[in-house]
């Protein structure tokens, strides 16, 4: 394994493509650096810093879509969209210092994935540089699109091993008109599970430690006033509830979550052929997903 000896910081996608084309050693992709320890060491001579690829590229609030540079942080994305009563509900496990690019590259979802969509559902298109140094502009900025083979889905969750994501086009949602966070103390976990599959289900519900009366759950209700009132009645019927601030969710996401899936990546003939086809020299994040062979 070669030691990382230097940092390269492209200022544009064109510069990045030049770097990848000319790279004879491995590149370790790095934006905010929150996902560097994905379970396997990356064999790379250089760290590729993408900080320059940051900021909002296009945002028309009434279309409920946004395009941002890959190094834009989740915090920035949240602030920009909140100003228009919207959000991009990626809300992955981890902190809001993480970048949009890494969230899409790792397809990391969070406690809201089942109701508001996973990264795979929320990404409409992206720009990336593959291992050949080709600049790919995949998908689009509209909410429905089947033109051509789906390079967007291919790059989402590929951990940067097929291409370096530089720009991301995302679907947004309106923030719920009423948005409440509760701590539920309940003895009967099965009743909670039944509620989660019912029409009055919450936006999210995650275990929040054990209390004197059994499991505690952090619950988020969202929707119009009538819906939330009915959902709240169903919640109160489950157990004792106390109101909490929505900021609890950032804490839960930062502390909780599944281990990075890269540690149990499974290669097969097809995925090995994909890696070889898109990055034949194994320049991008070599070793991150374990050995290819």
């Amino acid at each position: 394994m070669s030691a990382i000896s230097g940092v390269i910081a492209p200022r544009s996608v064109e510069e990045l493509a030049e770097i990848v084309r000319g790279a004879d050693d491995g590149l370790r992709i790095c934006a905010a650096g929150t996902w560097l320890d994905a379970g396997h060491p990356v064999q790379a001579a250089h760290e590729l810093h993408l900080d320059a690829l940051r900021g909002v590229r296009a945002y028309v609030p009434d279309d409920l879509t946004i395009s941002v540079g890959a190094a834009t942080t989740l915090r920035e994305l949240d602030a920009v969209t909140a100003a228009h009563g919207q959000w991009c509900p990626l809300l992955p496990w981890g902190t809001d210092n993480a970048t949009v690019g890494a969230t899409i590259a790792t397809a990391t979802s969070g406690p809201f994935a089942a109701t508001l969509g996973r990264p795979r559902d929320l990404v409409l298109g992206l720009e990336c540089v593959d291992g050949h140094g080709r600049i790919l502009r995949a998908g689009g900025r509209v909410v429905k699109n089947v033109a051509g083979f789906d390079l967007t889905r291919l790059m989402t969750g590929a951990w940067g091993t097929l291409g370096v994501i530089t720009d991301v086009h995302l679907r947004l949602r309106a923030r719920p008109a009423v948005d409440e966070t509760w701590l539920l103390h309940v003895a009967d976990d099965d009743a909670v599970a039944a509620w989660l599959g019912a029409p009055l289900a919450p936006l999210a519900c995650v275990p929040f430690g054990m209390g004197a009366q059994g499991t505690a759950w952090l619950v988020r209700l969202g929707g119009n006033a009538e819906f939330v009132a009915a959902s709240r009645r169903a919640l109160f019927a489950l157990g004792r509830c106390e109101t909490r601030d929505a900021s609890e969710w950032a804490i839960v996401r930062a502390e909780g979550g599944p281990p990075p899936r890269a540690t149990h990546w499974r290669w097969n003939d097809l995925s090995r052929r994909l890696k070889t086809a898109f990055d034949p020299r194994q320049v991008l994040n070599r070793g991150l997903l374990g050995e290819l062979a």
């Binding site: 397809a107 889905r153 291919l154 969750g157 590929a158 149990h264």
Partner: peptide, 12 residues
């Protein structure tokens, strides 16, 4: 969809 550790081959 690769949710257990793999490329999103069904997505492709």
């Amino acid at each position: 969809r690769g949710d257990d550790g793999g490329y999103d081959l069904l997505g492709a």
